[in-house]
Design a binder for these strands. Structure first.
Lengths: 195, 195
DNA sequence: ATATTCAAACAGAACGGTCTGTACAAATAA
DNA sequence: TTATTTGTACAGACCGTTCTGTTTGAATAT
């Protein structure tokens, strides 16, 4: 077996598996089988399955924050408001392609947040990072007079975040992202300052 | 042991346990221990753990729909808009008392929706019932001119629902319901027709 | 009223399978 | 050589489910 098993690669694969199967339904054996690792190598690299999950959460958070920042900073010719809306819509539009798996952090939070403190902490931190990555663009939209500058930017961001995650969960449940896209559009419409 | 083990009572207890521990973290042994049942009695009453969960979901949905209807129809002296807002706020306010467990349906959906079709169907049905229980009061608020009658009532209800569940998940994650209450207030403020 | 029958409810040990984590020897690197 | 990493087998716990035998209580027969 000539495959290099650096932690980053294994984590990437494990993260993908966790995304689709959750924590309890995914065994170490399967992770090893898919990555071509053996148990010895796995437990040499990771203290435990829990620790592996936590590192996967951190990796997911990092990737997601990067994606948020990249996507919100692309198309700068467009307004901040439009970039925000497009960002959320695109996250919903991708759902059919990923089997409506929703948000990994949300899923893990639901499965383990109540019983496993360390996992709960890692997941909460990830959530916070997402919100912080979005807030600057909300402020930008306020400066561009498309979102109400009298409302605290953080509050607006929290509202966008909550509605989006609710809509994402709804899409996951109903296996239909169109309704969720309508919901996000309706919210954005309502928040937009009428000229 | 003189306890009567009718299904309803066992389901009630099991539901409570599922709410706090999720599906995979709760074993049949624990259900039996808490209810004072034995395995024989359990498997005589229920086909499987999965079937037990599904019946618990149905029970939860029934209770919750009743609670929604009762709460939205109380205080009729208040406007429909205010009753809606108060309903959501009260659901968030109770979170500290239930250890920020969030919504049972949402949790189960996140844990099993992707891997277990039957559970997914039951959870989706529950979600739909909640929305249908709320929609009439949204229509009422439109008739009372506090919500925009030009927008489809179902769409507004979906928006309220999504934001609420997102906010609930956020409260669960951050162990802080105040931020979520702000979020719901902000949404309602924005939706209210300015006089 | 009393005895008999019988199906459903129940007890709880046992089973088969799965899981995480460990032991330890072999392989490799220093 | 000595230290580290890897491969594999396995320990030990756990879990959902099944199984066998027992209790129970109502229906039926005497």
């Amino acid at each position: 077996m000539n495959v290099k098993h650096n932690k980053e690669n294994v984590l990437k694969t494990g993260l993908d598996l966790f995304c689709h199967k959750g924590f309890n339904s995914l065994g170490i054996d399967e992770i090893c089988k898919v990555t071509g690792m053996t148990k010895g190598a796995f437990y040499n690299a990771f203290k435990s399955k829990e620790q592996f999950l936590i590192e996967a959460i951190v990796l997911y958070a990092k990737n997601n924050v990067n994606r948020i920042k990249t996507q919100l900073q692309a198309n700068k010719k467009d307004t901040a408001y439009n970039r925000l809306l497009q960002f959320y819509i695109s996250m919903l539009e991708v759902q059919p392609k990923v089997n409506f798996m929703g948000c990994f952090i949300n899923n893990i939070m639901s499965e383990l947040g109540a019983t496993n403190e360390n996992v709960g902490i890692a997941a909460t931190k990830a959530f916070d990072e997402f919100i912080e990555a979005i807030e600057p663009t909300v402020k930008e939209a306020q400066r561009e007079n498309e979102l109400d500058a009298n409302i605290n930017a953080r509050q607006i961001t929290e509202l966008l975040h909550s509605t989006f995650y609710g809509a994402l969960t709804r899409a996951k449940s109903s296996k239909d992202h169109q309704q969720s896209i309508h919901t996000m559009n309706l919210l954005f419409n309502n928040l937009k300052i009428k000229p």
